[in-house]
Amino acid sequence: MADGQDPRKLVEVSGLKMHFPIYAGILRKQVGTVKAVDDVTFDIYEGETLGLVGESGCGKSTAGRAILRLYDPTSGSIVIDGKEIAHLEGEALRNLRPTMQMIFQDPQASLNPRMTVGSIIAEPLLEHHAMKPKDRRARVLELMDAVGLNREFASRYPHEFSGGQRQRIGIARALALNPKFIVCDEPIAALDVSIQAQVVNLLEDLQEQFGLTYLFISHDLSMVRHLATRVAVMYLGKIVELAPRDALYADPKHPYTQALLSAVPNPDPDSVPQNRIILNGDVPSPTNPPKGCNFCTRCPKVMDICREKDPAWLDLGQGRYAACHLLEDA
């Protein structure tokens, strides 16, 4: 993103909620709701990578899926490329699919075990593009090269691959239609560091070449630091902090972000884990979030007001935002 000029917003999410009903008993009566994503607002600029980090189960995948309309959101608005898509259906939605893609967290579950790798990667091409079989074949091999899969494996089935190799099949498939916007859900968690580096470099190259925009969901804070332009931190269905990358890593404002950054293991057996903030207290559930701030049950800096009042989303200047009572009068 060039400084000075206003970058264009490609994705605008506002007030997004994704609640799942919970049913119980023989009559499957609704007994509650899982507030997996609960009022989330953010933008993603064209050509940038927004990192999305946060606790396991806090709603990152659900947010990603809802934005790509793999779910019907409970409420809120999702504007992609100037077009409101939160409530599109049928053909209108299908026509949008090629421009937005997802790399899934669970590679195994998202690959059809009865299809060869070649046909898995070709599937989106078949569905959305009129292409000669010869060209399609060439495109599949090109994609396999791009993600570092041996071309000779095109006729193999997913179970014949290792975990990391399967993840790359999913990446090749997501890239097949030259999408504009990709939600990468833990795309590198299953890979060794060298291949992680290859995939991340590949994602960066593609971004530069085609101006791709990414929402990059990951637990790997060092990779997020490498790849992301800005980073959003989620906790229990809400975004608690959003900041440009360097500012966030140098000076995290929200106590949850501080705890998260302090817990990254250091690849040095002699380093003593320094100042690691251990989170104690009850892990709240998205069915029954606590009163006040969602983090109040575990926050090391909790105050009385935190158990009463939901903190407001504060503009801290220089593109930084956070929701925390500690930051209110500062």
């Binding site: 980090v53 946060g54 606790e55 396991s56 967290q105 975990g163 833990e186 968690a189 299953a190 637990h219 804070l221 705890a259 998260l260 817990a263 990254v264 293991p265 690691r276 251990i278 989170l279």
Partner: peptide, 13 residues
């Protein structure tokens, strides 16, 4: 076998 790949660092800890 890769028991914590899907966990954030605080839960991993």
């Amino acid at each position: 076998d890769e028991p914590t790949t899907a966990l954030d660092v605080t839960i991993q800890a």
